[in-house]
Simulated assay, not measured.
Amino acid sequence: MGVYEEKKQTCGTICLKYLLFTFNFFFWLAGVVVMGVGVWTLLEKSDYISLLPSKTYAASAYILVLAGAIVMVTGVLGCCATFKEQRRLLRVYFVLLLCIFLLEVLAGVLAYIYYQQLNEELKLNLKETLIRKYEVGSYEHITRAVDKLQQEFKCCGSNSSSDWKENSWVMDTGRKVPDSCCKTLTEKCGVRDHPSNIYKVEGGCITKLEKFIQDHLKIIGAVGIGIACVQIVGMVFTCCLYRSLKEGPY
């Protein structure tokens, strides 16, 4: 009877080992994806981040990068702990899983909260940014971001092209709007603000930028919460394997 129980336990342990190893392989791949989403957000969309007064959007991306890096390291550690059957390593692995779980939930929650307040924040700050910081020496990054925003999304001004009447640089140069508002970008094309020459989009750039950021917040939130849910499976497997291993000096 004792031999049967021991064989049953050994068989169960082996199954758990391979389940946990398989989980760790896919978990490592998930870490690559998580880090990739975070890095892509920070590098490809960094110009638009500078137009947001709140750092919540950037913080969510940084959390994903950090979590992705830890996930990749943890995946390798999990494989080592599984095949060496070391309870101490399994304990460390479980703690790391828990930390990553909390980080990714935090990223998801931050993305959700910011999603709710984004519209109001843009209404309060985007127009002020365009008026006060565009073509001001110490805000060159803002100027680049605004020009890229207007060209990429084919829009002009925060709410409309008339917002630029309050920008001193635009008025001093004889323009009605910045050249980046033009449908065909040429030097001083912004002197004429006729609809045939510049983008006249209902709602201005604020609606375009809001949709863009909200779409990316959905991705950040979904990735964070999705991977966190998968980790629960890993933590369950880890606990089961830990309990199935005999107590020893390790």
Rank of each mutant, 00 (worst) to 15 (best):
F94I: 13
I206N: 04
L126Q: 02
Q231T: 03
G31S: 09
R87I: 02
E120V: 10
S196R: 11
I113R: 08
V230S: 13
C239V: 06
T22S: 15
L126A: 06
G248V: 11
W164Y: 08
T207P: 01
L185Y: 13
L245E: 02
Y18R: 13
D163G: 04
S54Q: 09
V65G: 04
E121A: 13
D47Y: 08
D215C: 05
S138F: 13
K176G: 07
K211V: 00
T143E: 03
D193S: 08
F153Q: 12
C156P: 05
E166L: 13
E135A: 10
A228W: 01
A58P: 11
K17F: 09
V39Q: 01
G36D: 05
K165R: 15
E140C: 12
I70F: 11
Y18Q: 14
S54H: 06
K183V: 08
T207A: 09
N167W: 04
C156Y: 01
F26N: 15
V105N: 02
M1C: 14
A111H: 04
E120T: 10
E152K: 10
G248A: 12
I142G: 03
E6Q: 15
V136L: 10
M72F: 07
L122E: 07
K8E: 10
L90W: 00
T13N: 05
D215V: 00
V230H: 05
R87M: 00
K17M: 14
G108Y: 00
A107Q: 06
E202M: 10
I232L: 13
L122K: 04
K127G: 13
G204C: 05
W40H: 12
H194E: 13
K200S: 10
G78Q: 08
V33D: 09
C156N: 01
C229L: 14
L241K: 06
A69C: 12
R175V: 01
K246R: 11
N24A: 14
G203Q: 02
P53K: 06
T41S: 09
V233K: 04
K133R: 14
W164M: 15
T238Y: 01
L106G: 10
F26H: 15
I219M: 07
L42S: 04
V73A: 15
R144I: 11
K154W: 02
D172W: 08
K165V: 08
C189Y: 01
R175H: 07
Q150D: 09
T82A: 12
E210W: 00
K55V: 12
V71C: 13
A228G: 12
G137H: 05
I232G: 03
C189M: 06
P178M: 10
V191A: 09
C181G: 03
E85I: 03
S244L: 02
A145V: 01
L77E: 09
G36R: 05
K218Y: 03
F27C: 10
T22A: 15
D47R: 13
D172L: 15
V109S: 03
K218M: 08
N159E: 10
S46R: 06
Y134M: 09
C15M: 13
M35V: 09
N119T: 12
Y62D: 06
R192V: 14
P195V: 07
L89M: 14
L103D: 04
N159I: 06
R175I: 05
L52F: 05
H141T: 13
R243P: 02
G75K: 06
T10C: 13
E120C: 08
E187F: 12
D47L: 14
G38Y: 05
F26I: 15
Q9K: 14
A30D: 11
L19V: 12
